[in-house]
Design a protein around this nucleic acid. Structure first.
Length: 408
DNA sequence: GATCCACAGGAAATAGTGGCTT
DNA sequence: AAGCCACTATTTCCTGTGGATC
């Protein structure tokens, strides 16, 4: 009897449900694709491409549609000798300024041996390097800036690049920018100069409806799951849950995948509604958990402080009470505590991420106004995470106390 | 209606890191 | 080695705020 054997009851090809899987056709986005294609038409004609701005929430198909259309475009453009197309794809996650975007673009275009660092050069130098690289490629260059909202309000590059030709920095290249944003308000926060140039064409991707999600799931399920592996209402449920929450195809697919995973782990052969609900919980928990793990050191310390107070059942607590606890924990771990003001920023961050709850209090002349914080996750989960952290810990006695009272 | 509590949170200054240029 | 550049995290300083109390 082998230790591992291949499971043949649920997934026929689970990769089809994974994030990186690219379907050969895109569903339920016909309208958006039409507008998008029209905007790309100048490329085929060998004209200066138009700049394009896509916006919509995460998981509504912006990136998938872009990949799909550009790969077709690259193929179709081969038929014409007078058009040379290059696509440069850059994910702006973690890039917080125009400078960094420019530097990363240069690196995209250069071979690995000639990479530049993302600090150190004067701003204009990096732009010059970028223009030189673009010049040497020539032809039409489409620059896709995915998650462009991460650069915040430093949108200089979005202004520079589209106008580089007009300003005489570029001559043999026809650059086009495709900006993809998950943040709907990013569009409004752009400076007016940029709006004029970048947003010549806009495509808005609305969230998927439950019906649309359902048909996407049906198509994927056909390739990913055995026919007998799921009850018929399972797909509808996944679609409905995802539609209610984010309208994201990613979420719907994750749900289905996780539900299958849970079913398999339970040694059952049919995905049922209850498995989907379990999956939803597990995913939610996983996200929060990951959010907590990825905090900075002082974020962890602040969380540990609130947790420690929560364990002794004294939450919600105001900053005045949390700070000494935080300082004590920090010092116990050889870290110099931050000043109150700064630690409070960390608390605000935690509240923003849904890890802590924050209550505004105002007791007027006799009390003034202040905030109180409490855990917004279960004590159990917080304890679990803080326990796992290498760099922080709350006192063993406290944990033991919590265990004794049956909180775990 | 004026006053005042207790602090939130904005703004500017400073520290610290990593890297370039001469 | 000295002087820049870009960027992030932190400290320091301080103004503004909502409502109980005078």
């Amino acid at each position: 009897m082998p230790l591992f054997d291949r499971d043949t009851s649920i997934f026929s090809d689970e990769d089809v449900l994974r994030e990186d899987y690219q379907p050969e056709s895109i569903q339920e986005r016909d309208e958006e694709i039409d507008t998008y294609m029209a905007s790309l038409q100048p490329v085929i004609n060998g004209a200066q491409p138009r700049n394009l701005f896509l916006y919509g929430k995460a998981g509504v198909g912006k990136t998938a549609v872009t990949r799909y259309l550009l790969s077709h475009l690259e193929r179709d453009v081969d038929a014409y000798d007078d058009v040379a197309l290059t696509v440069v794809w850059l994910n702006c996650n973690n890039l917080s300024s125009s400078y960094q975007v420019a530097a990363n673009l240069v690196n995209e275009l250069r071979p690995p041996s000639q990479q530049i660092s993302t600090t150190g050069y004067p701003r204009q130098t990096v732009f010059d390097m970028l223009y030189t690289e673009l010049e040497s490629i020539g032809g039409t260059v489409l620059i896709v800036l995915d998650e462009i909202d991460h650069i915040g309000d430093d949108d200089g590059i979005l202004y520079e690049l589209p106008r580089a030709r007009a300003n005489g920095y570029l001559s043999s290249v026809k650059p086009g920018i495709i900006g993809i944003s998950n943040d709907l308000s990013f569009h409004d926060s752009l400076s007016p100069k940029v709006k004029d140039t970048l947003c010549e064409e806009e495509v808005h991707f609305p969230p998927y409806t439950a019906g649309e999600l359902r048909s996407i799931l049906e198509q994927r399920a056909e390739n990913a799951l055995y026919e007998t592996a799921y009850e018929t209402n399972v797909l509808s449920l996944c679609a409905a849950l995802a539609a209610q929450d984010t309208g994201s195809a990613r979420q719907a697919l994750d749900l289905l995948y996780k539900a299958g995973d849970i079913t398999r782990a339970a040694d059952e052969t049919t995905i049922r509604e209850s498995h989907v609900r379990d999956a939803q919980q597990a995913l939610e928990r996983g996200q929060i958990r990951q959010g907590m793990m990825e905090l900075t050191r002082h974020g962890h310390l602040a969380l540990a402080a609130v947790l420690s107070i929560a364990i002794s059942d004294e939450t919600p607590a105001r900053v005045r009470e949390i700070y000494p606890e935080y300082s004590a924990i920090a010092e116990r771990f050889g870290t110099k505590p931050l000043v109150r003001r700064r630690m409070h920023d960390h608390l605000s961050d935690l509240a923003m991420q849904g890890i802590l709850k924050r209550y505004a209090r105002n007791h007027g002349r006799s009390g003034g106004q202040y905030y109180e914080y409490d855990l917004d996750v279960t004590l159990e989960l917080a304890l679990d995470v803080v326990d796992e952290l290498e760099d922080v810990d709350i006192s063993l006695e406290a944990v033991r106390g919590a265990k004794l009272r049956g909180l775990r």
